[in-house]
Design a protein around this nucleic acid. Structure first.
Length: 254
DNA sequence: ATGGCTACGATCCGTAGA
């Protein structure tokens, strides 16, 4: 089973790239973030024609998440139970017996800002929910734009980024609190190239300079981690004309 | 140098992303 995550930064703009990527990458499941469109505008026909079912939770302009899958997604649920939130950032579905949680974590804007506090509250609620979810679903995968670079090696210039949003210690602690539930960062289960990133700023020729961060992740419960044979970042879509600033992350489960 | 791109919805600039 091949599972993937990709923040596509507007499904409307990136739909042609997605439709090219699906047959090339052949994922069984792909979690998408930043759809930036309401559910009525979700391109259900194009996705179906590509051979994928879809569950989605969209909103106009901002946020929005979807799970595309070869098999029918069941028991879909949007949001974090008990955490009232207008922002569509969370979607869960079970596919072929594996519970998938698609996440678009808040950006946090700046350390100490209101949005930063919201991000930490969101993570606290997420942790509580995932702890519960893991009890009922031993085969649990969390995929998405988590908006945290967990370690210095996930940052192109750790000195420049020290203490900044996406990298700050409270955010990293929030990320580690998920690992403390038993999740593995699938990317780090394997030998990886130095300076592997999943996001590059549109500005400053950041991609060409590989000035990026690794903030898109696939976390696997212990039973799934034991089945994982590879995790890779697919940089190809970032090289296209008019790319998303994020690029897909893919994990293989036997 | 705190900028620099990009998407969006409202204009011809502001908000947000990361």
């Amino acid at each position: 089973m091949r599972i993937a995550t990709w923040n596509i930064n507007s499904l409307k703009v990136r739909l042609p790239q997605l439709l090219d990527w699906l047959p090339a990458a052949q994922p069984d499941v792909i979690c998408l973030q930043e759809l930036k469109l309401e559910d009525a505008k979700f391109p259900r026909d194009e996705i179906a024609a590509a051979g994928y079912r879809a569950a989605f939770s969209g909103q106009k302009t901002y946020n929005g998440v979807a799970i595309l899958s070869r098999s029918e997604p069941v028991d879909t649920f949007a949001g974090i139970p008990g955490f009232a939130d207008e922002q569509k950032r969370v979607l869960a579905a079970t596919i072929d017996g594996v519970r998938m949680v698609c996440l678009y974590a808040p950006n946090g804007q700046a350390v100490g800002s209101e949005k930063y506090e919201y991000k930490l509250r969101w993570y606290a609620a997420l942790r509580e929910w995932l702890a519960d979810e893991m009890l009922g679903h031993p085969d649990l995968a969390v995929l998405g734009d988590l908006n945290v670079a967990p370690e210095d090696r996930d940052v192109h210039d750790p000195k420049a980024w020290e203490g900044q949003v996406l990298v700050s210690e409270p955010e990293r602690e929030a990320f580690r609190s998920l690992l403390a539930l038993g999740f593995k960062d699938s990317f780090r289960l394997f030998e990886q190239p130095e300076k592997s990133f999943s996001w590059w700023d549109y500005r400053m020729l950041a991609f060409r300079r590989n000035a990026g961060l690794r903030i898109d992740h696939i976390l696997l419960s212990p039973s799934l981690a034991a089945r994982c044979t590879a995790c890779t970042i697919d940089k190809a879509p970032r090289k296209l004309e008019r790319p998303s600033d994020h690029t897909p992350v893919i994990a293989e489960l036997r």
